[in-house]
């Protein structure tokens, strides 16, 4: 029986497998965005309590930088492979919101496949699993050259 796909943490991203989005906070009437929504910061240009709206953030951006974790991170990270396979992490600046978002890079890409300024798109992928569920998270995926040309 197929496992149930559930978000690793509720409310931080949409679960559309083909076009997932991070769920951020936006200050009403301003281009001020925060992620995640439930830990939004403030904008000192707003007097008094800000009106926060929940919004789906754009899903494309360019690589600000990238790295790896060659050793398994400690809990609460869940090591999903035995032996541990080093993960690749990218910091990507969203085109629209001009904010940098961290995320793992999907399997198959290492630091040699990435460079600052490279185009990336948000993906939905398995973070870890147990007997019943697959716990999902956002990751970054390089857009292939053809897809970039079509933009």
């Amino acid at each position: 029986m197929a496992k149930t796909r559930v978000p690793a943490v509720e409310g931080m991203f949409t679960m559309d497998p083909d076009d997932p989005h991070l769920i951020g906070a936006k200050i009403a009437g301003r281009d001020s965005y925060f992620f995640p929504c439930h830990l939004a910061g403030g904008d000192p240009g707003v007097a008094g309590p800000a009106q926060l709206e929940e919004v789906e953030l754009s899903s494309r951006g360019t690589v600000w930088s990238y790295t790896t974790s060659d050793y398994p991170p400690p809990p609460p990270f869940v090591v999903n492979t035995d032996p541990y396979q080093p993960i690749t992490v990218a910091a990507v600046q969203l085109h629209t919101e001009k904010m940098v978002i961290l995320g793992q890079v999907v399997e198959g890409y290492g630091p040699d496949d990435l460079h600052v300024g490279q185009e990336m798109k948000l993906a939905l992928d398995v973070l870890y699993e147990d007997d019943d569920n697959e716990y999902m998270v956002w990751k970054w995926r390089p857009t292939d050259p053809i897809e970039s040309e079509l933009r």
Binding site: Y33, F35, E97, M99, L102
Partner: peptide, 9 residues
């Protein structure tokens, strides 16, 4: 996990 946004300010 994210920076501030440079879009508006």
């Amino acid at each position: 996990l994210a920076t501030d946004s440079g879009a508006g300010t």
